[in-house]
């Protein structure tokens, strides 16, 4: 038989993740919206609304880019590129090894907000809304 081939880690497409149930709550976050909006194509459109972000993420052109990104990440070619974005060392190492799971863990270790932090944020947001 063709031994070995079966033991390869299956390549995953990050786009499948980005169109998952997590996307809507993340895109409705005002801070995220602001950060992402800065990286939309110039002259894109009108308002830079949440709808526009959602449409961009759902566009075949974006999907294509994410698929390329996914392949590059899992073939270990993305490390040097990601280093330019100032990602944490551990995430770069995982990217150099093409290890998506290790990459995800390194990213969360560095960026994930603790629960208290998020709760605090929420309550302060609420106060602002009621004022």
């Amino acid at each position: 038989g063709a031994g070995g081939a079966g033991s390869d880690k299956p390549a995953i497409d990050l786009y499948d993740i980005m169109s998952s149930e997590h996307l809507i709550p993340i895109l409705s976050n005002k801070e995220v919206q602001e950060t992402l909006r800065a990286h939309l194509p110039d002259g894109n459109v009108v308002s830079g609304s949440e709808k526009e972000l959602r449409e961009s993420v759902q566009s075949p052109q974006f999907r294509q880019a994410v698929s390329t990104f996914s392949v590059a990440l899992q073939t270990g070619q993305l490390g040097p590129v990601l280093a330019q974005f100032g990602l944490p060392e551990e995430a770069i190492t995982a990217a150099n090894e093409g290890d998506m799971q290790a990459f995800a863990q390194a990213m969360e270790k560095h960026y994930k907000k603790s629960n208290e932090e998020t709760d605090e944020k929420k309550s302060s947001d609420n106060t602002m809304d009621t004022n």
Binding site: L14, I17, M18, H22, P25, I26, N29, V32, T35, L36, H39, L40, S56, V57, F62, A65, V66, F69, L82, F85, L87, A104, M107, E108, H110, Y111, K112, K113
Partner: peptide, 13 residues
């Protein structure tokens, strides 16, 4: 954009 979106995913766990 993708890098920022991945970061946002990480931030939100």
């Amino acid at each position: 954009f993708i890098v920022e979106l991945v970061k946002a995913y990480a931030t939100h766990g």
